[in-house]
């Protein structure tokens, strides 16, 4: 299963991004192989509806789990509808690497 983690940068030492629709990057982790890749968020400057657009992106990528700091009401509703698991972490000091470690342990 693929997991998306919102990230402020495009490498494993980047800090976790608390925003969902307006996150800088998404780290896509394939939990079966442990491989990661980074995708730039094109919605970061959208003036409206960044959250729902990001959900579309998640569906397109086949993500089953999203880790972020918060989800807007509309994004929440859609993620719920499509059975994508939402995980909220409140510690923005974490790096992507540390979050991945938590999952894999």
């Amino acid at each position: 299963m693929k997991t998306a983690i919102t990230s402020t940068g495009n490498h494993l030492d980047s800090e976790f991004d608390l925003r969902f629709g307006r996150a800088g990057w998404f780290c896509i982790l394939d939990e079966d192989t442990g491989k990661t890749s980074f995708i730039r968020n094109e919605q970061i400057n959208a003036s409206h509806g960044a959250g729902t657009r990001t959900v579309e992106k998640m569906m397109e990528l086949g993500v089953g789990k999203v880790i972020s700091g918060d989800f807007g009401p509309k994004a929440k509703e859609l993620l719920e509808k499509f059975n994508i698991q939402m995980i909220i972490l409140e510690d923005e000091q974490l790096t992507i690497k540390e979050i991945i470690k938590k999952i894999q342990n």
């Binding site: 003036s47 409206h48 509806g49 960044a50 959900v55 569906m59 397109e60 509309k74 859609l78 499509f82």
Partner: peptide
């Protein structure tokens, strides 16, 4: 222009978000 429509072809989903 207001990102008010969500269409996800893979799951055949299309909806208008009236608040946007």
């Amino acid at each position: 222009e207001f990102n008010a429509i969500v269409v996800i072809p893979t799951v055949r989903f299309a909806e208008v978000n009236s608040s946007l």
